[in-house]
Computed example of a mutant assay.
Amino acid sequence: MEKTALLICSGGASSGFLAQNIRKAAKKRGMEIEVIARGESELREYMNQIDVVLIAPHLSYIQQDIEQQLNGSGIPCTLIDPSTYGLLDGEKGLDIIIHQLEEK
């Protein structure tokens, strides 16, 4: 069963690259995970399609707002650590998603 993660970013290229690297890591592991990189303003549009939300580290100031928007939805949300984000580490990004889904 495919899971979908929403990566909240400010529309930069790095988020798209990280999303792509997470998809590649998932494929290598034989997992079906879609990762969509979008701005925070688009969260509501995707709430019926997503299983987990990741927030780019430079947007930590909006984490509380996103958690409030997700309140009651059962969709977990976490901040990506700067190292994973900065290195565009798809393997670690995938691990974050898996951890969030297991906690759900």
Rank of each mutant, 00 (worst) to 15 (best):
K24R: 14
A19N: 09
G86H: 05
G11S: 02
V52K: 02
A25I: 10
T84K: 07
T4C: 13
H58F: 01
G16V: 12
I8M: 10
M1Y: 05
L54A: 02
H99C: 03
G16H: 09
C77T: 07
L54F: 11
C9F: 02
I55R: 08
A19S: 15
G39E: 14
E103Y: 05
M47Q: 09
E103T: 12
G86E: 12
E32G: 12
E91W: 01
E102A: 02
R23L: 12
S10Y: 07
I97T: 03
L18G: 13
G86Y: 06
P76S: 10
E91S: 14
Q68S: 10
S15N: 11
Y85E: 06
S15M: 06
G93A: 01
R29N: 11
E40I: 05
L7K: 01
N48T: 11
Q49S: 14
A56R: 05
A13K: 09
I66T: 13
G39H: 06
Q100F: 00
E40Y: 07
A19I: 10
I66M: 13
Y85M: 04
I75E: 10
V52G: 04
K27W: 00
I66H: 07
I62T: 15
L6T: 10
A26L: 07
Y61A: 00
A25V: 07
K24I: 04
G30I: 00
Q69M: 06
E45R: 11
S83I: 15
N71E: 13
Y85K: 01
E42C: 12
K27Q: 07
I96T: 13
E40K: 00
H58P: 09
D65L: 02
S60H: 09
L101I: 15
Q20V: 08
S73G: 05
E32L: 02
F17W: 08
E32P: 02
Q64Y: 06
G90Y: 04
D51E: 14
N71A: 09
K3P: 05
A19H: 06
E40P: 05
E2N: 11
T78H: 02
E34Y: 02
G11Q: 07
G93R: 01
E42M: 08
A25C: 00
L7F: 00
L6W: 06
Y61F: 05
L79C: 08
E42A: 13
I98S: 07
P76I: 06
I62R: 00
S83Y: 04
E67G: 06
G74N: 11
L54R: 01
A13S: 09
T78W: 04
I22R: 04
C77A: 14
F17K: 15
N71K: 10
K3Y: 14
R38A: 15
Q68R: 09
I50Q: 14
L54H: 08
A13I: 14
I75L: 08
N21Y: 01
E2I: 09
K104Q: 14
H99V: 05
K92E: 07
R38N: 08
Q63L: 15
P76G: 13
Q69S: 11
K27G: 01
P76Y: 10
S10N: 15
M1P: 12
L101A: 10
N71F: 02
G72H: 04
L7S: 03
M1C: 05
Y46I: 12
I97E: 00
D81P: 07
N21H: 10
S60Q: 15
G74Y: 04
G93N: 03
G16Y: 12
E103K: 13
K92P: 03
I97R: 04
